[in-house]
Design a binder for these strands. Structure first.
Length: 484
RNA sequence: GGGAUCGUCGUCUAGCUUGGUAUGAUACUAGUCUGGGGGACUAGUGGUCGCAGGUUCAAAUCCUGCCGGUCCCA
């Protein structure tokens, strides 16, 4: 372990294939995305991690705004009386709620929950703000954190007691309009995750058993990770009137009759970052899609002791300015105390999508060396072609999505036979298998195989197959998998 | 929910069985030489041994409790 090779301590010491869990932990820590906080289950997001989140946030904000959604902010404390107003909702969240019971030395009257989610609080406010159909639709998004106590098996980004997310809450006059909104949001989620993070997702509905507590139904997007486990990437819920009734979110319609409103809620969290790390990372470290990379291009100048140094550095400066004027995020690694080889490894660990090497030899040849992070391809590029860099970055982005699409396709199977199912689930992956719709079969399958229904893909309903468990007529072909 | 395992300079680690004030590497600082895949030499800096009790003349080491990390299985 502590061999004389110091390099083993700096980089990733296990392989993704052989020890996935340990590999993931090393990446998030060594690429300096996060560190552990002093309290169990909580993490600190460092600048390289946070800027990925900021990038996602700004993309979502633009798309939300285009869809008429504005941002607001809600406080973190919710009184117990409010949280308990919708009973199923409360029962679902209660086991993992952190409670504030004191202010200073005094006990508080009504216990205060650190928000596990904000439906109850948001809708208390909405009830005050909405009187007429003219006040609708009301569409507000909240960027905040949610707290849900995770006692065991915490993992940075994937399972922590506090997580960064956005929660959107919309109110509509009709069921149709609300349901349309649910789908619209899911569409925004899907194309953002695929375009920005280069992770393919499957969209559809959750089963009754897996839906959001309090929702009429939940739509979801699911991804398959390289270790064969499923990761829920985001959900968009149709709440119907389940919350508008207890919270009295009512409006007077054009005919002056009072109606309960129709609602939606939806969210994605920093779990998306975890999915990105798992999907693209390799044994050298993190691999970032260009669109979310804090640094897209790193330039490493190479020179022999002053000889040619000036020439190299001035060319580097010139290239840097060219790239910056094309809106590329560039960093020049001019640390003099480190060798070029060290820098190569260092930036690979951090996942920078493209590296430029430039030294005296290149100056002579009027070209630079470019190395792509995601496929380790190293080629040379003439000075005159540097303007192509934005195109090259776009190609990297697209190819990363293509590559991960292939990966997920390879990890998806259609299985109709339960014996076969039990065998294949051990290898992980998405198994598309017919199901009768009975929660009892779902439960039994979960018990016997550890796999649950991740998503019932749109368009997989109405099959002519038999339920793989009970052999009755099936109603859909859900994706079963073991999940995070 | 069940089980296993770990915590010693920033990082990795020796020492723990058999108590006597902590070893080495790397990193860091300064300088010289280097520089195209984790460089070399010289000289330095850095640790209340996770925390709190207990046993003892004496605790990194033994005992108890707590905190935190990791992995496996439901």
């Amino acid at each position: 372990m502590n061999s004389s090779l110091g390099k083993q301590d700096v980089g990733i010491t296990v392989s993704k294939k052989e020890d996935f869990s340990e590999w993931y932990t090393q990446i998030v820590l060594k690429a300096k995305l996060v560190d552990y906080a002093p309290v169990k289950g909580l993490i600190v997001l460092r600048p390289d991690g946070y800027s990925i989140w900021e990038s996602l946030r700004s993309t979502f904000d633009k798309k939300f705004a285009k869809n008429g959604i504005r941002n607001g902010f809600l406080p973190i404390l919710i009184p117990e009386s409010l949280l308990g107003k919708e009973q199923k909702h409360f029962a679902g969240f209660n086991p993992e709620v952190f409670w504030v019971t004191h202010s200073g030395n005094n006990e508080v009257g009504d216990r205060l929950a650190l928000r596990p989610t904000s439906e109850t609080l948001a809708y208390t406010m909405y009830a005050k703000w909405i009187q007429s159909w003219r006040d609708l639709p009301l569409k507000i998004n909240f960027w905040n954190t949610a707290l849900r106590a995770e006692i065991k098996a915490t993992k940075p980004f994937l399972r922590t007691s506090e997580f960064l997310w956005q929660e959107g809450h919309t109110v509509h006059t009709t069921q149709e309009e609300a349901e349309k909104e649910v789908m619209k949001i899911l569409e925004i989620y899907k194309n953002t995750v695929e375009e920005e993070l280069a992770i393919p997702v499957t969209t559809g509905k959750k089963s009754e058993k897996e839906k959001f507590v309090g929702a009429v139904y939940t739509t979801t997007m699911e991804s398959i990770m390289p270790d064969g486990k499923a990761l829920q990437m985001g959900t968009s819920h149709f709440l119907g009137q389940n919350f508008s009734k207890p919270f009295e979110v009512k409006f007077a319609d054009k005919d002056n009759v009072e109606h309960f409103a129709w609602q939606t809620s939806w969210g994605v969290s920093w779990r998306l970052i975890g999915g990105m790390i798992m999907t693209h990372g390799d044994d050298q470290g993190l691999v970032l899609p260009p669109r979310v990379a804090p640094i897209q291009v790193v330039i490493i100048p190479i020179y022999k002791n002053n000889e040619g140094k000036e020439k190299v550095l001035s060319k580097v400066q010139e290239i840097k300015e060219t790239l910056e004027s094309a809106d590329i995020r560039v960093n020049v690694d001019d640390r003099s105390e480190l060798s070029p080889g060290y820098k190569f490894n260092d930036w690979e660990l951090k996942g920078v999508p493209l590296r430029i090497e430039i030294g005296p030899k290149d100056i002579e040849k009027q070209s630079i060396i470019i190395a792509k992070r995601y496929n380790h391809e190293k080629t040379s590029l003439g000075f005159t072609e540097i303007g192509k860099m934005p195109t090259i970055l776009n190609e990297i982005q697209e190819n990363m999505l293509k590559k991960s699409r292939e990966q997920s396709r390879e990890n998806s199977l259609e299985i109709s036979d339960y014996v076969d199912f039990k065998l294949k689930i051990e290898e992980g992956g998405f198994l598309n298998s017919p199901w009768c719709g009975d929660p009892e079969c779902e439960e039994k399958i979960k018990e016997e195989t550890g796999a649950d229904i991740r998503v019932i893909p749109f368009g997989s309903e109405n099959t002519d197959k038999k339920c793989m468990y009970c052999q009755k007529q099936s109603v859909s072909i859900p994706i079963f998998a073991r999940g995070y």
